[in-house]
């Protein structure tokens, strides 16, 4: 199996008021190239720290992380790791550098020292792939949150990374912006084959992922397909995650004695399941 990221017994400790705390506690997993993985976790579960470990922004206190075979601890290949694993943060406002959209997207490729004509092409491609090409000459502060976040994603895509890590990219967006981002990510994953690791606490965004990991207290407590994960409503609730309304509804019906399958996710599937169940009765 071809893995873009390998995490081996990674530990990350930090000191807070003289007390050593473990944000990530002996975690091991790997991310398959071209996959769409969602890491779910409540605030303070260590998921943001894990994200920063994956592209070398933070170095593990113990254990190793390999990106395409390169150890993130290696000082000399630091830039190489960041070029392979791009990272998008929560607040789009604090990621954009320039006041013209296309100049901001060009920032990454410019840092890589590419030829001006290559940069031009990459910027145009990146803006097209997030559907923001027609805004290339406008200024970010006139755009909506979702649009700004798409520009931030384009800025990373323009460096042509193999993997894209997003740390709660939708947390500051309205529902419309959230949908824009999730569908953009899905498109990038399907059409460009970019590996996506989406870190979030919105379970709806995990629906169509290949794989979902649930994090709590610095440990991965579950790692499975979305359908399997969503069946465990009790577990998810116990770690402070709210399950999608459809799952919640089916779960409640089942608990009250209806013979209904709880492994469907979308609204349509849920409606069908309920209709089917009623016919049977």
């Amino acid at each position: 199996m071809d893995n873009i990221i390998e995490v081996r017994n990674a530990v990350y400790e930090y000191v807070d008021e003289d007390v050593v705390k473990r944000a990530v506690d002996n975690v091991s997993f790997s991310i398959e190239r071209g996959s769409f993985t969602v890491i779910l976790g409540h605030n303070g579960s260590g998921k943001s720290t894990l994200a920063k470990l994956l592209n070398g922004l933070l170095k593990p206190t113990d254990g190793d992380i390999f990106v395409d075979g390169i150890n993130t601890k290696d000082e000399e290949t630091e830039i190489e790791v960041k070029r392979k694993v791009g990272m998008v943060f929560q607040n789009p406002d604090n990621q954009l550098v320039a006041s013209v959209v296309e100049e901001d997207v060009a920032f990454g490729p410019e840092n890589l020292g590419l030829h001006p004509s290559v940069i031009r092409k990459r910027v145009d491609d990146a803006l097209n792939s997030v559907g923001m090409y027609e805004y290339r000459e406008s200024t970010p502060h006139r755009l909506s949150g979702g649009q700004k976040q798409r520009i931030a994603i384009a800025g990373i895509i323009a460096m042509e990374p193999s993997c894209l890590i997003l740390d709660e990219p939708t947390a500051m967006l309205d529902p419309k912006g959230r949908k824009e981002i999730v569908s953009t990510l899905r498109k990038l994953n399907k059409e460009k084959g970019i590996t996506v690791v989406l870190i979030t606490h919105y379970m709806e965004e995990a629906e169509k992922a290949d794989r979902v990991m649930v994090m709590n207290d610095g440990v991965i407590i579950d790692d499975n397909t979305p359908k399997e994960i969503f069946k465990k409503v009790e577990v998810l609730k116990s770690v402070g995650l709210s399950v999608p309304q459809t799952t919640e509804l089916l779960y409640a019906l089942k608990q009250n004695g209806f013979n209904i399958s709880t492994d469907v996710l979308s609204v349509e599937e849920t409606a069908n399941a309920i209709a089917y169940c009623l016919e049977e009765e």
Binding site: L57, I79, K82, V97, N111, G155, M159
Partner: peptide, 8 residues
């Protein structure tokens, strides 16, 4: 941090 991630 974001600039660092963009290879600055």
């Amino acid at each position: 941090e974001a600039m660092e991630c963009r290879c600055y």
